[in-house]
């Protein structure tokens, strides 16, 4: 990673400020609870939409080959369907990729 320190620091600062504003600003702007069912639904669904869009298709390009990534994805899907913890799923996916890349 060849990124100048100034760009790094500014990027981190932007993340911190924007995140803080999402937490602190609403109360300053509106004092009432959001009642609109469409806005409520939108706010509930958005994190999953973001994570979904970030995961696919990018996951296929996150390892040395599409096939090891597919193996990792499959294991992650099965374990998370069984509601294993975040760490368990992430570590298992890595382990499967590691093993798969030795054989492919």
């Amino acid at each position: 990673m060849n990124i100048p320190t100034s760009q790094l620091v500014l990027s981190v600062a932007i993340m911190a400020v924007v995140t803080y504003l999402t937490r602190s600003l609403p109360l300053t702007l509106f004092r009432r609870e959001i009642k609109n069912p469409y806005i409520r639904a939108f706010l509930e669904y958005i994190p999953y939409a973001v994570l979904g869009a970030m995961t696919l298709p990018d996951i296929f390009f996150s390892t040395s080959s599409i096939w090891s990534a597919l193996a990792g994805l499959t294991v992650a899907m099965i374990l998370s369907y069984r509601e294993k913890s975040l760490l368990t799923v992430a570590v298992a996916a890595c382990a499967v990729v590691f093993v798969a890349e030795r054989f492919l």
Partner: peptide, 28 residues
């Protein structure tokens, strides 16, 4: 092999929620 870790975590957040809620499944 760690490159996939972040996506494993994302999947671990999405799948249980999508299992319980059809709207979340559809949106994802």
């Amino acid at each position: 092999a760690l490159g996939i870790a972040i996506y494993g975590m994302f999947i671990a957040i999405i799948v249980p929620a999508a299992k319980k809620s059809f709207p979340v499944f559809l949106v994802t």
